[in-house]
Amino acid sequence: MITITEIEAIPVRLDIRPLSEPLGIAPYVTTYTEFYDMERVLIRLDTDSDITGWGEMRSTLSTDSTKAIIETDIADKLIDEPVSAVESLPERFDSFQYFDIDPFLGGVEMAMWDAWGQYLEQPLYNLLGGKVRETVDVSFCLGVLEPAESREHARTALEHGFDVLKTKAGRDWRQDVKRIVAMHDEVDGQLEFRLDPNEGWTTEEAVRVAASLEDEGIYLQYLEQPLRIDNFGSFKRLRERLRTPIAANEDMYFRHNLLELVKRDAIDAGVIDMVPAGGLQAAKRLASIADDAGISLSHHCAFDLGIKSAALAHLVATTPAINLPPDSVYYAWDEHIIEEPFDLSDGTLPIPEAPGLGITVDESNVEKYRIDR
């Protein structure tokens, strides 16, 4: 039996390709900040069988804090334990009642699945129930830009085979409407659009944006998390006032919120993320709830690198309930931490066929970009 011998958290920082370059998106502007680069935490899980599993996460804590939690609180419970215990991982941390351990477990669980699949010589999709699709269509993501500049990038997305474009919302909802109208006009309606204010609007602003777009004959694929989390009643009232589908994202990061939104009949779609959910199994449980409720699902992107993008491919390939293209910005990386980077230039993410996650980590690049030396 293969057992865990060491768990290491490795923070890295990579630059995002600038807007001036093909498929570049930096600075990626949102309502609260702008990104030129992104920090991620890679998780290396070594075993007594000379097999190494890899996971990946983004943390809202400092990288030092994230590293400490993974290498102490989590590692202390998993060293010398079998990798096959991946399915019982959450139960081992039931005592963490006053701290949200799920995002850290999400990254570690990914590494356990990778190692377990390598040991069994099976691609992860076989361990998750088998493929229901051969490739994964993804959504192009774009930050806040002026309408004229947004037009150019919408055209680029269409020319590269993307069918859906997600854009962040800014601080002026009128400008958001102008940008969507401009992009819709540029591609002659051949792209679907998602608009994401990151909880930044009031109900009145959300109504004005969606109604203004509806008046222009533009119906978003969905309006993503326009209101703050735990605001179930307002979501329900917003959905009742609009024809535009309403989606929740940040609400999906907290246990039972999806179930509560379903009970209130408050959303049309959900945007889940396997890492804050607690892992691939937790993401599948959310998918089951959504499927039973008839709610469509997509998957969030937090500037994922190749490890999590591989996990995403396996998750979506084996989960029919994730019926909308997941978000991705993978096309915007110039440098990579896997030896054979994915090519998303045609708007699709391939599903790796090698055992485990199906990728080989480029450890020299990991050392090049790590930030904890």
Rank of each mutant, 00 (worst) to 15 (best):
L145W: 00
C141D: 11
F162V: 10
R151L: 09
L158T: 11
K178T: 02
E159L: 14
T202I: 01
R194P: 02
V207M: 06
R155G: 07
Q221Y: 04
G170K: 01
W201P: 01
E205A: 08
D188S: 14
F193T: 10
F232T: 07
A148H: 12
E240S: 15
A169N: 04
G233Q: 12
Y219P: 00
V144D: 02
E186N: 05
E199K: 08
T203G: 03
Q175H: 12
D196E: 02
V187H: 14
T167W: 06
K236V: 04
E216M: 11
Q221E: 12
A157E: 05
E152V: 05
T167D: 04
V144L: 05
R155N: 09
N231H: 13
K236W: 03
Q221K: 13
G170I: 00
I180L: 06
A210C: 15
R228C: 00
A148W: 05
L145K: 00
D172S: 04
K236I: 07
D196I: 01
L145P: 00
S150A: 15
R151S: 09
S234N: 11
R237V: 08
D163W: 01
D215N: 11
L195I: 05
A182L: 01
Q221N: 05
K166T: 08
V187Y: 14
A157D: 14
R179C: 06
N198F: 04
W201Q: 03
T203P: 03
R237G: 08
L195A: 01
E204W: 02
E159F: 12
R239G: 15
E224T: 11
S150C: 06
R239W: 10
R239Q: 15
Q175D: 10
E214K: 12
E214R: 12
R239S: 15
E204Q: 08
R239V: 09
P226V: 05
G233V: 09
S234I: 06
R194N: 03
R179I: 08
E159K: 15
E192I: 04
L223R: 07
Q175S: 14
V164Y: 02
D196G: 00
Q221P: 01
C141A: 12
V207F: 10
L158G: 14
P197L: 02
D188F: 00
L195P: 00
S212F: 13
G170T: 03
E159I: 11
F193C: 05
Y219K: 13
H160R: 11
V181S: 10
E214V: 10
F162P: 10
L227M: 04
A182E: 15
G189Y: 09
A211M: 15
Q190G: 07
E192K: 13
R239C: 13
V187D: 14
A210I: 01
D188Y: 09
E199M: 11
V209Y: 09
